[in-house]
Design a protein around this nucleic acid. Structure first.
Lengths: 219, 219
DNA sequence: ATAATATTCAAACATGCGTTTAAATCGAAC
DNA sequence: GTTCGATTTAAACGCATGTTTGAATATTAT
């Protein structure tokens, strides 16, 4: 009885095969065969293929969110108030460590996560968003606290830049050192945030000669 | 004969449906019905569903690469040498304009492109890379020219950050103004690049004293 | 007009899919 | 030891898919 349960074996196999081949290409026959369980076990324990995918996501996102929030709490509890780099690191590092840890499936899950963002599956998107919205707002608030006066719309847009950079980086198959990648990304994001406090829209209102017109103010 | 040819009608419908639903979910019956052509026309003109996908990519990537390189040439031809913002804009703006232009299919194609990066389809990945490698190197060289002394490995990594931010932003369905998004992203990327070029030891300011401990201490 | 070629068409083929079913097997509780 | 619910199993169902086929039609050149 040291064997993992049927549910866990299905979840593990599904996570691997969904990430490797995509949701629609990975078949339940493949998954159940890799898990060493019967085909019908999926519908017995989860109800449908789609519900299985959601279960795979939930299991990992819970752990990731917890790790991120724990680090965020540490950053917020500092004596002098939160430092921007600490907040960014609390967001970036757990995800990268998760995607490159000793568990090879972590990396595959992160590829699956990026796939989910690329997909237009609305049910899946909604499920992930609801699982993430709370965490994202905590981080947005913390970052705003370190950048007083920043317009909320611009900050949201810049957070998307960081999420994109992080997601894309995680999906890359390069096996470079996690900590150094996290360091580089935090530094890059912090510099990007600090160095572009004013929205381009404020400049665009007067310069109508195209994007380059607004960009040549590279003082 | 004022109607578009069968090939073009298939390509248009395929681009839309691949982007909306993904490669494996969009069926040839859907595509040929939307195009108003017979089911077998796909195999007659393209050979297979996969070959149709590659044809869809090639048609758009040619145009995007051309637009990017044209703007890059303009940036490189400036009297005082290329400005970092101009080079970044040459990379960012055509993609964003393409994804949000008057042609609604442009946006869908960019979603399809992000999907391709998330997919592990090696044939597709190789085809896209070969179509992109030349352009990417041109831009990497141009950026390196504006940031003398930057370590090539770090620059490559930072370029991936920018590609990720751009790709993720393009896949978002928000309909905000293209030029303002491009400007914000260029400004963010330029600040990120300029502000994080120094090694960790030299990058030392009061704002960062807490980050190093967090980043380089494993939990 | 005729022949040759290129293209379109409706129909079928083989396959794999997610799902369902109903019987078989297991594990405790009484 | 029997009973009863939980779990596993093998088999089948219905359906959609990519692909192929061969005849019908349009296009072009002679």
């Amino acid at each position: 009885m040291s064997e993992p349960s049927t549910c866990d074996r299905i979840l593990d196999a599904a996570e691997t095969l969904f990430a490797e081949q995509g949701f629609h290409l990975a078949s339940l026959r493949q998954i159940t065969q890799a898990a060493g369980v019967n085909l019908a076990a999926v519908h017995y324990h989860f109800g449908s293929k789609q519900a299985l995918l959601l279960a795979v996501f939930r299991r990992r996102l819970d752990a990731l969110n917890q790790a991120r929030l724990k680090r965020l709490e540490e950053a917020l509890g500092k004596a002098d108030g939160p430092q921007l780099e600490d907040v960014l690191d609390a967001f970036v590092y757990p995800a990268l460590a998760f995607s490159r840890g000793s568990d090879a499936d972590g990396h595959r899950f992160m590829q699956l996560l990026m796939r989910a963002f690329a997909d237009r599956d609305e049910d899946l998107h909604a499920a992930i968003s609801s699982e993430y919205a709370f965490v994202m707002r905590r981080f947005a608030d913390a970052i705003a606290q370190t950048l007083p006066g920043r317009e909320p719309d611009l900050l949201r847009r810049q957070l998307d830049f960081i999420v994109g950079a992080l997601t894309y980086t995680m999906a890359e198959s390069s096996l470079a050192d996690t900590r150094s990648i996290a360091s580089d990304l935090v530094r890059f994001a912090a510099a990007g945030l600090r160095g572009s406090g004013l929205s381009a829209e404020l400049y665009d209102s007067t310069a109508r000669t195209g994007a380059r017109g607004t960009l040549e103010t590279s003082s």
